[in-house]
């Protein structure tokens, strides 16, 4: 997908390829809409806070993955970009872990 713009933009095969992708975009769009409604519906169930956070983040992660994989074409992206993102995800993980490690009786860093 990422090479589409840099290569020839003519030919029946290419047109069929784009048509196939458009069908995928529409399917992903429907899935995102359904998951948005699921997110809101779950919030009305009044689950316990830890469970609500877990469910909401799982649904959001699925939605985010759909956007990244299909709209941003990560599913067929070059290895260099995936490597950059892997590094980003690792550092993002550190950022998210910091509050846990520094909070109260954190695992490693004591107040």
């Amino acid at each position: 997908m990422s090479d589409h713009a840099a290569t020839s933009m003519t030919g029946d095969d290419h047109a069929a390829d784009i048509d196939r992708h458009v069908r995928v975009y529409i399917t992903v769009f429907v899935a995102l809409m359904v998951l948005t409604l699921v997110t809101v519906a779950i919030s009305y169930l009044h689950l316990s806070v830890p469970l609500a956070i877990t469910v909401a983040l799982v649904v959001a992660t699925i939605k985010g993955s759909l956007v990244a994989c299909y709209f941003m074409h990560l599913i067929s992206e070059k290895k260099l970009i995936l490597a950059v993102l892997l590094l980003t995800v690792a550092f993002f993980g550190v950022l998210m872990a910091l509050p846990v490690l520094t909070h109260g009786d954190g695992f490693w860093i004591r107040e």
Partner: peptide, 25 residues
């Protein structure tokens, strides 16, 4: 247009996480 789209999808992606964390939890 593809590059501009990547930025726009990222903005959408951020909102997908902002919405439940701020509004619903």
């Amino acid at each position: 247009v593809e590059n501009s789209g990547l930025f726009w999808h990222f903005v959408d992606l951020v909102w997908i996480f902002l919405f439940p964390t701020l509004y619903l939890l």
